[in-house]
Design a binder for these strands. Sequence first.
DNA 1: TCGATCCTGTAG
DNA 2: CTACAGGATCGA
Length: 268
Amino acid sequence: MPELPEAEYMVRRLQLDASGVTIERVRVLRQSATGSQRPSRLKRLATGQRIRAFGRRAKSVLLHLENAHTVRVQLGMTGHIYRVAGDEPPHTRVAFDLAEGGTIAFDDPRTFGKVTIHADADLPTVFGDLGHEPLDSAFSVKHLIESLSQSRAPIKPLLLDQSRVVGLGNIWAAEALWRSRVDPFQPASSLSPAQWRKLHQAIVAVLTKAVDDTFKVTSHSAEFPEADLLSAAVYGRSGQPCRRCKGAIAKVTQAGRSTFYCPVCQAR
DNA sequence: TCGATCCTGTAG
DNA sequence: CTACAGGATCGA
């Protein structure tokens, strides 16, 4: 169920656990895991390749190979990727067996994730629809305003639109709005400059803290992150008191997704 | 821009 | 049992 912080965690974990490894064999344990590509393509292009580096774009984990190809792992709702020493976990969909021993397993119970491979030269096209990276030092209030403020749609669903700003999912979009005291139903086009500034700052702060906390909480387990809801102020807390004003946290539906917020201190 | 949908696990 | 889940995509 990863958003940017969990994806970032997995990348850093792989950097520690699997730096410089070579893929000896690729096993696609569920055909649909490679999306519109054939499993044979992934096997052909990744087998025998050393992993030059791990990276991240939006919520995807990237394995940069020495043959100028990149494996893109879209985590979906339940995807995790990490190195295991022995047998892969039960819901592993793709296994990269390593020459050094062990396996990089893509473990994805709900099977919404995808593992695809692309020539590096094609990556700009592959990622062409993705918006700004919020943790880039270049990400500015101006970027946020440019990508969101033309729409009259409610701000919360817009924050989930990966063609505008990437990395926020249902949890951290709600958290960023709470932190900046913006009503999730407020039309994006009506936010004031001061609100945009606060929202920008909140997005960066919330994601940065989530990355840190995820790493902190799980830094002694070599596997996947969990319990990263510790710092959530609104997500999953409907009916409980707001940590700022003690008002009751509400749960509503927007664009088919649940939105948690405080109707008192996030009022317009 | 919305609703449905792809699947499986888990909470109520 | 039903409802719901942190994502992404597709057609209307």
